[in-house]
Amino acid sequence: MALSIEDIKKIAHLARIEVSENEAAATLTKLTGILGLIEQMQAVDTTGIVPMSHSQDLAQRLREDIVTKTNQRDEFQKIAPVIGNGATEKAVSHGLYLVPQVIE
């Protein structure tokens, strides 16, 4: 499978990674190399082998449905870049994390 520079830019955009023109060319070479490796591996006969979804051959452990977390909003919001403050902004903003406006 051949990748184009446009594919690199699209993947970078989806991952929100800034890639300059120079870096894009280098990334293209590296990613193409990885895909080449995968193409080689596809020559291996995997008939009858169950696809692996985790490196450990274990099953998920489950948690009882009991509330164990308490309200730590004030602690968490100390490190937030911007939070709503009901005192200086509209009261409904109190306790919200604020981000640049996202239009629906």
Binding site: G84, V92, L96, Y97, L98, V102, I103
Partner: peptide, 15 residues
């Protein structure tokens, strides 16, 4: 949940 319009030019996030 995103809360729009609570603060001018910002979106509020309630997790």
């Amino acid at each position: 949940k995103s809360v729009h319009g609570a603060v001018e030019g910002m979106s509020g996030i309630d997790l």
